[in-house]
Design a protein around this nucleic acid. Structure first.
Lengths: 223, 223
DNA sequence: AGGCAGCTGCTCAATATTGAACAGCGCATT
DNA sequence: AATGCGCTGTTCAATATTGAGCAGCTGCCT
């Protein structure tokens, strides 16, 4: 586990980024248009997906038919990881393209193999899981603490920075009040009410496109 | 990466369970009594913990001083994993012993090393993260969908089965209405109101100890 | 042009939730 | 015995939230 191996390894460095960028054994790339389904709640789960481009919406339907959006996943995020653990797993959520998108489908077996054999990949994945965990936990805390007004403000701010990397996108794709309501766990009534309030206060603009002022932060920060 | 290595491995199988059961290089065991702090929100994070025995409460304090309990962790669960990713990390929550407990403290460096070098451990950890992710996500969905009445019912049912492994504990440790309120994101007012309702309907019993009837499921299942 | 679908803006009564107050109880301390 | 502490049971007015309905706008399809 030293000289020899080390040398061999230098000739065959596993490239996690390449693995996630191209199709190959057990993995296929597909282009989706807005609204295309990736998988649906209740289906058997036998593949993991990785977002190469675009945004994917994760939703859950309740027993009474209410819909909740539990995450919006962007580039370099995984979805459907739940299938890795056990063999007979069902999707707990529905994934659809929220914008045109490109995703890599990784068959369960291949995912398990790579996770098992490629240290680098497994470390990348652990880091991803930790980050995702933190994010979901923040969402939970947000729900536990904040009023729907603050949750809406937070959701908008997160959307504005969704592309990350430096300067926030002050302008936001397109998102209906219904979807916003699903994301923060309230009704369109409420979303509509606060959107108008935020606009009147100059926190957001809102003709054809939606843009977010940093002053919207006040809603969250104040008391 | 074959014969030789394979042989050596059979003489030195890494035992993840032993690693998590004993103290050793970079890891120490400590006994806690109820209420003892493990770490506090805002502190620098440089160790991961593993629950050997007992229950640990994870709480978050909001800007306005409200407290939310985001998880109750039992045996074989990790806490404080957030510190693995980046070096300068702050605790996002406070961990205290909810019952007398025994925890293993694993220094950040040692955790990273083992994660890096021991395939078995890293796989165990990935499985744990996936499970934990699923659980937090369920909590989030619960918050997004359900009324506080249903959330309380769910929290009680989960507590009753907390010890898992077959038959549910129908009797529950001891938990104040205040804590319950913190767990489901509402006020003691509400918890008290529903606790009495559940009792009157015969879903729970409630003299000195608290016990949960399976009929409490109706609260969740019914529409 | 006409119709349809999806979206926003608005209203309102019915409910759910909060936050605060007060009394009583058990228990440990002094 | 007296005190304080943490908990429960209870009340209540002030707010927040829901759910439903209705009108108007836009773009899309035929």
């Amino acid at each position: 586990m030293n000289k020899a191996v080390k040398t061999r390894r230098s000739t065959r460095v596993f490239n996690a980024l390449a693995f996630l960028a191209e199709a190959g054994k057990g993995r296929t790339v597909s282009d989706l248009k807005k609204g295309d389904a990736i998988f649906s709640q209740g289906e058997a789960a036998n593949a993991v997906f990785y977002v190469q481009k675009g945004k994917i919406k994760l939703t859950v339907i309740s027993k009474v038919g209410k819909e909740a959006t539990i995450a919006l996943l962007g580039e370099k995020q995984f979805l459907g990881e739940e299938c890795i653990t056990a063999l007979k797993m069902l999707r707990m959520a529905t994934a659809t393209a929220f914008t045109p998108a490109t995703v890599l489908r990784i068959e369960r077996a291949e995912m398990v193999r790579v996770l098992h054999e490629e240290k680098l990949f497994s470390e990348l994945f652990v880091a991803y899981l930790l980050a995702r965990n933190a994010r979901v936990q923040e969402d939970l805390v947000d729900q536990l603490f904040n009023s729907s007004e603050k949750r809406l403000a937070r959701a908008l701010l997160l959307l504005a920075q969704f592309g990350k990397e430096g300067a926030p996108e002050t302008t936001i794709p397109k998102i209906s009040q219904d979807t916003l309501a699903d994301m923060i766990g309230t009704t369109r009534s409420r979303v509509n009410f606060f959107m108008n309030r935020f606009r009147k206060l100059g926190f957001i603009e809102y003709n054809g496109k939606l843009s977010i002022h940093s002053s919207l932060l006040n809603v969250i920060l104040h008391d």
